[in-house]
């Protein structure tokens, strides 16, 4: 059951660089939010961006996507500037960034993922509808497709955004806290979808705040606190010393818990 991606022909080599960030600095009113970030993310990884509150996680992906104007620095997606590669990039914003009382249905919101491909003025038709229905089925919301989005639970709304990103049929995905406010079952469903995307050779970059699940869910991680603390495969980078560097004193708690987790894992009956 191979995935029939509309972009299968455009699929780049697995060793190409999905995202390349160089010297990125962002400041709000003289206060640096991100300082001199260098980042290189290959295709085919599922990467978490973690760091304390105010570390600039959201700002990092918003500036990669051109939603925040950086003070300095360059961003390249698959070797070219972002503006030329928009169609290859999918985005899941924070759930709280829109008004869910808006008069629109689940299907309607998911179809929005095809708007970029449609371009100006052209209306979505049967093909867009089909693609949206397919994505809605993948996230398990088929029964709710005609509901107004405000009648959904938080986890369901999160899945609507995920389905909208799926119909974008992108190669590189950015997701801002897709697990925020979702129950355990939904979290499993979402992570399964993200893993499928990765296994198809795509890059999935996720702002994440739960350190407990980093090792279980992700294969790459970037630790951020205004500056880039570390970035790379989880087993190399997600270390006590890096966590302490990112979180300061607060890391003591996390690293003790992590040590316990690792002990349990060594004992053979780990998670």
């Amino acid at each position: 059951m191979p995935e029939t991606s509309r972009r299968a022909d455009a699929n780049p080599k697995a060793d190409s660089t999905a995202v390349e960030v160089a010297d990125l600095t962002v400041a709000y009113r003289d206060k640096p939010v991100l300082w001199d970030i260098d980042l290189s993310v290959p295709m085919g990884v599922l990467m978490a961006i973690v760091g304390p509150n105010g570390a600039g996680k959201t700002t990092l992906i918003r500036s990669i996507l051109g939603l925040v104007r950086p003070t300095a620095g360059q961003v390249r997606i698959l070797g070219k500037p972002y503006a030329k590669q928009r169609r290859l990039v999918g985005y899941v914003p924070q759930r709280g960034s829109v008004d869910w009382d808006f008069p629109t249905t689940v299907l309607d919101v998911v179809i929005m993922g095809r708007y970029g491909e449609l371009g100006w003025i052209r209306r979505p038709g049967a093909a867009e509808r089909r693609a949206a229905e397919e994505a809605i089925e993948k996230v398990g919301l088929t029964d709710l497709a005609d509901r107004q989005v405000g009648q959904l639970s938080g986890g369901q709304q999160q899945r609507v955004f995920l389905a909208r990103a799926l119909v974008q049929d992108s190669l590189v995905y950015f997701m801002d806290e897709p697990f925020q406010g979702v129950d355990a079952t939904t979290e499993r469903a979402i992570i399964d979808i993200l893993r499928t995307l990765r296994d198809e050779g795509k890059a999935v970059i996720v702002v994440h705040h739960d350190l407990q699940t980093v090792e279980e869910y992700f294969d790459w991680v970037t630790l951020l606190n205004v500056q880039r603390i570390a970035s790379g495969p989880v087993d190399e980078v997600f270390t006590d010393s890096n966590l302490r560097a990112a979180y300061g004193g607060r890391a003591a708690l996390f690293s003790r818990e992590l040590a316990e987790q690792r002990e349990r894992a060594k004992g053979g009956d780990g998670p």
Partner: peptide, 22 residues
């Protein structure tokens, strides 16, 4: 009427619309 879908995008989720290139 012509800009219906663009105006809907602007009203519901302008950030997402910007990433689509509008």
């Amino acid at each position: 009427a012509l800009l219906w879908k663009e105006l809907k995008l602007l009203s519901f989720d302008p950030d997402f619309g910007a990433t689509l290139g509008f």
